[in-house]
């Protein structure tokens, strides 16, 4: 009883009550805010993660527009069965240039964090147009409208906006955005300037259409997912958490 008797003093004095409330809010706020200042130590220091190429970034916009994240996660969790199925667990570093990240919270379809390189461009095109053409038991909707031409008129402005929130696009990358986008979607030349600016970018048209289509952008994005970090060079103790 004794301690609750003293508690009444706190509750019945407006000054003490105000101080008590202030202390509670400060503690609650610190718990939420302080971890954000340690983000530098939270993100693993691994090589290879780069901002998305203009074409991949447009593909990512389509991924978000079509709501792919509602059924597909992009986060291989550090569990044995997930690592067996999808590959190395996802690192925080791998989505550091995602605004917003696409980790997702539900898997109606499989996780896509490491889908890059797993299938051919041709497979992705068939599968996006009508998933049941290649996977008879699939419940994914078809996206045949992605055959339309890609509108990339704002890509340089998009990249500038992303730079404001922390994606390190260089002036050179922004100046060449449209040229790079078209080059990646039309040229098979692995020594093209765009491949130099964005290593591991998947070159070439994904579909049969010589114009730049939304399918080209989508497939370029899917093909780079999870491929930027070379895990044969990553020491496990460096990323242990």
């Amino acid at each position: 009883m004794s301690i609750f008797k003293h508690h009444a003093k706190l509750e019945t004095n407006v000054f003490f009550l105000a101080v008590g409330i202030l202390l509670s809010v400060i503690v609650g706020g610190l718990v939420e805010v302080v971890p954000l200042f340690t983000i530098e130590s939270t993100i693993e220091k691994v090589d290879g993660v780069r901002p998305y190429s203009p074409l991949e970034q447009k593909g990512r916009d389509i991924y978000v527009r079509e709501g792919c994240y509602l059924c597909h996660s992009q986060m291989v969790r550090p569990f044995k069965d997930e690592v067996e199925r999808y590959g190395h667990y996802s690192l925080a570093a791998e989505s550091k240039y995602d605004h917003p990240f696409q980790w997702g919270s539900k898997r109606t379809g499989p996780d896509l964090a490491r889908v890059g390189g797993k299938y051919t461009n041709d497979w992705h095109v068939r599968h996006l147009i009508n998933p049941r053409d290649v996977v008879p038991e699939s419940v994914m909707p078809g996206y045949p409208h992605l055959k339309r031409e890609l509108d990339y008129s704002t890509i340089d402005a998009d990249m500038k906006a992303l730079r404001v929130v922390g994606v390190p696009y260089t002036d050179e990358q922004i100046a060449n955005a449209k040229k790079d986008l078209v080059e990646q979607a039309t040229s098979d030349d692995a020594s093209a300037a765009v491949a130099g600016r964005y290593p591991k970018a998947r070159m070439g048209s994904a579909d049969a259409n010589p114009k730049v289509t939304e399918l080209d952008a989508m497939v370029a994005y899917l093909q780079v997912l999870g491929t930027m970090v070379d895990f044969t060079t990553v020491k496990p103790e460096k990323i242990a958490r």
Binding site: P78, K80, R241
Partner: peptide
């Protein structure tokens, strides 16, 4: 404890 270390030992056991 670290979940990634636990995974390492899980995989090792497997």
């Amino acid at each position: 404890y670290a979940s990634r270390n636990e995974l390492e030992s899980d995989i090792k056991a497997q």
